[in-house]
Design a protein around this nucleic acid. Structure first.
Lengths: 145, 145
DNA sequence: ACTAAATTTGAACTGAGTATAAATTTCGGA
DNA sequence: TCCGAAATTTATACTCAGTTCAAATTTAGT
């Protein structure tokens, strides 16, 4: 299994190391779009010599090699996603939860002035309120009447 | 003309003040997606008592009232746009310039799992290289041969 | 004109991310 | 297997966009 991670990194031209494999493994097992801080906190007990700088460096390296996505939907911290396939993200403005959104028909969009630009990335961020928060809100309103 | 700005703010339920009108006026005249810092630096000579905190507070207030868009395409600082109509943004990864992109056919996109979410905002960010940077790069390559 | 509420201001603070330089690990060649 | 250069990791110090907070000023109603 560790071998699978190693091969995965090599595919993206990234030299595997204990730390890099641990971070990639974490991202593949936690599809919760974690922050660098969360990754460090969860991996530190497993790798006691781990440094926060290494986590930041590793995530930056992965993103540069297109091995992960860096999601900038939260104005506080960046989040990371090992799923690099084309998909959008939704963030609840109340609880902060982040959902993946499968988008179909993106290619039918027509963009003016596109010709002069060479696009390498496209990020689609939706914001609003999730089901849970809407229900919670509705219940609170009921109780206040 | 100052009256026009005042009316514009009132439309969004924002009480006009000298500082608020100056910031809104600036954003309407500078469609360059400026940062809070840039707005402060340009307005400070005009309003010598202006505080950076006021600029931050004002921009936050405007965004909350949907009077402006807060653009998070740059991982360093937020940028602001008085054009609140539906459009996307492009950022050059080389020179950092930001272009508006008119998008048509957004409504044809199909999103799975959309039903359980109440969406209030959608941000579409493209990244890549602008015409100028591509040409500059091409010229440099030529000179090195 | 007087007072309460809203707004503005500047100073101190926060915290995600970066820079740097030393320590450790990796790895190819003798 | 040993050596040394290169890559990687680490801890500390630092940066800087944005926030907090409390005092000062302005606005608006009576």
């Amino acid at each position: 299994m560790a071998n699978f991670i190693k091969e995965h990194l090599l595919k993206y031209g990234i030299k595997p190391s204990l730390q890099r494999m641990a971070v990639m493994n974490y991202l593949m097992q936690h599809k919760t779009h974690p922050t660098a801080e969360e990754i460090f906190n969860d991996l530190y007990p497993v790798i006691p010599t781990l440094s926060k700088t290494t986590v930041y460096n590793t995530l930056k390296l992965f993103a540069e090699h297109n091995a992960i996505l860096c999601i900038q939907i939260d104005d506080k911290n960046a989040r990371y996603d090992a799923d690099t396939s084309s998909h959008a993200h939704f963030r609840c403005k109340s609880c902060g939860c982040i959902h993946d959104l499968k988008i179909e028909g993106l290619e039918t969009i027509h963009i003016e002035n596109y010709g002069e630009l060479t696009v390498t990335e496209c990020h689609i961020y939706y914001k609003g309120y999730c089901k849970d928060c809407l229900e919670k809100q509705a219940n609170e309103n009921e109780n206040n009447n």
